[in-house]
Every structure is written in C-alpha cells, then in structure tokens.
C-alpha cells in the first residue's frame, strides 16, 4: 500500500502541473479583465486538436508543434477578445462574460465537430506510452515532459508579470483598472494581450492533455468545471495559486482513489474546497479585497 500511495502522489504532482498550465490562463484572464472565461475548456481542446492535426498531417512532434500552436492560439485569443469581450460594458462585464464566453465555446465546439467529427482521437508520439524506471517507480515520459514544460511556461509567465514593464502594466490593471488608466496605461491593450496569453498557454496544456486522454470537442465540458474549481481554490487571479491548487487537487484525488475509493476522490476534493473557502473566502492565494472596477 505504501508504494501505491507514493505512486499516487507522483501521479498527482505530475498531472497537477499540466492542469496548472491549463488553469493559469483562466486565472490570468480573470485577474486582469474580470472575465470568467468559460471557453477556456474548449480552448484547451482546440490546442489539443491543433497539435493532433500537426502530428497526423505534417508529422510534427507535439512538443515542437507548440511553436506553431501557441502563437496560433494567441492570435485566436486576440480575435475573440476583439470580437466579443471588448464589446462588453464595464458594469456587467463579469456576469456577461460567462454568457459570451459560453457562446464562444459553443461556436468553437461546433467548428471542431464539423472539422474533426465527434470521434475520439488521441495524440501519439514515441514517449506517450513509455516510462522511465526510477527508485522503483515507473514515471511516464509524457507526464515528466509535460510537467517540465508547465514549470518553464509558468516561470516564464511569472517573469513576464514581475520582471517586465508590460508585467507592471498588467499588475497595475489587475489592482485597479481606473487608476491604471489614470497613470497612462492602455488597459484595453493590456487586456487584449492578456486574453491572448491566457488562451495561448492552453495550447501547451491542451497538447499534454490530448496526449494523455482520448478527447473530442465535448470533453471541454468536463475540463472547464475542474479548471474553475482549481482557480477558485487557488484564488482567482493568482498564478501560484493555480499551480498549488492543481497539485493539491490531483494529489488529494489520486491518494483518496488508491487508499479509499475512486468514487470518493472528487467528493473529498470538493469537501476540502468548501473547508478552504470557509476559512479563506478568496482561496489559498487570492487577494482578500475585491478590485475596484
């Protein structure tokens, strides 16, 4: 049993890194724009499909293909922001964003169903089913590579936010949009780029998700509920919170599944979520004071 628990913890940490990557975009978008992006799940699947298409039709390795899919999703994100999000009025932005991004999600789902059909697919590469034997445990390459990539990308996002002038603009917009405007920050431009970035990182998360799960467009519905749970637990707008909450969620669920029962795994996580939110309503790493509009 001891080794099974350790294996479950390893599984949870590695998978948690990938979920953190998917959730990072969601929390970044909310933090800067007050947008609850319900379409984040379908963007993950869109990223998975793009990697799949490049792999199947052009023979491009899924990790190398990210050099194409990440910019592609960045542009798609900017297009969605320009076409739908920017037009929302400031006052009811958060509530309306749920409806608008849900509509975007439905549109993309329809396009994917027409383009790829509803049949399940999965991304294949030499490392997808292989693993390395370390300290008595088999560690799948795909999760190791995915976790390493998640760490690199999350550090890159962190550096962008905290080590660049653009990051200072983002953080200023995150703290107070009106005050940021008053000091000359182009909040609209910052928001557009942040939405693009938030969508772009899903290309990486989606690729690993698509290599570890069979998926079709409808898979996005399962994903978005989990991603929302992660960012709420971590604290809306907190990048570190997304990572911490994703790892916490996956490790807790995986250990409960092994020690007790898989049926209780999700229930225990949500019970933990309720407990955490009752003690810290803003989540593990969230800010206590709501930002002014």
């Amino acid at each position: 049993m001891g080794s099974s628990i350790i294996q479950a913890v390893i599984d949870g940490v590695l998978t948690g890194g990938v979920y953190a990557l998917m959730a990072a975009g969601l929390t970044l978008i909310f933090g800067v724009m007050d947008i609850i992006n319900i379409a984040q799940g379908i963007f993950v699947i869109l990223g998975a499909y793009l990697s799949y298409a490049l792999s199947v039709h052009a023979g491009i390795d899924p990790f190398l293909g990210l050099f194409i899919t990440i910019p592609a999703l960045f542009l798609i994100g900017i297009g969605v922001e320009w076409g739908f999000i920017r037009r929302l009025k400031e006052g009811d932005r958060t509530a309306m964003s749920i409806l608008v991004t849900y509509a975007v999600s439905i549109i993309i789902e329809g396009v994917l169903n027409v383009s790829f059909s509803v049949n399940y697919v999965q991304i294949h590469a030499w490392y997808v089913n292989r693993s390395v034997h370390l300290f008595g445990f088999y560690l799948p390459y795909i999760y190791l590579f995915g976790f390493a990539m998640a760490a690199v990308l999350l550090i890159a996002i962190y550096a962008l936010l905290y080590r660049t002038r653009f990051g200072a603009s983002v953080r200023a917009s995150l703290q107070d949009r009106t005050a940021a405007r008053l000091v000359g920050i182009d909040v609209r431009r910052v928001s557009t780029i942040c939405f693009g970035l938030g969508v772009a990182v899903t290309a990486a998360g989606g690729m690993v998700f698509g290599a570890t799960n069979a998926f079709n467009a409808s898979t996005s519905y399962d994903l978005i509920s989990r991603l929302l749970a992660i960012v709420i637990l971590g604290g809306l707008g907190s990048m570190g919170g997304a990572l911490g909450a994703a790892v916490f969620m996956l490790v807790l669920e995986d250990v409960v599944a092994v020690v007790w029962s898989p049926v209780w795994a999700t229930a225990v996580f949500f019970a933990a979520l309720v407990v955490v939110l009752s003690v810290r309503p803003a989540g593990l790493f969230g800010r206590q004071v709501a930002r002014a509009q």
Partner: peptide, 17 residues
C-alpha cells in the same frame, strides 16, 4: 474490485493501482 465515477479527473492512479 472498485467502482470509479463516470467522469474522473485522472484515471492514472486507478489504473496504476
């Protein structure tokens, strides 16, 4: 002999078990 939910976040620990 265990039952798992129809929608699981991660099948890996169940399959590993």
């Amino acid at each position: 002999s265990k039952v798992f939910p129809a929608e699981v976040t991660d099948y890996t620990p169940i399959a590993d078990a």
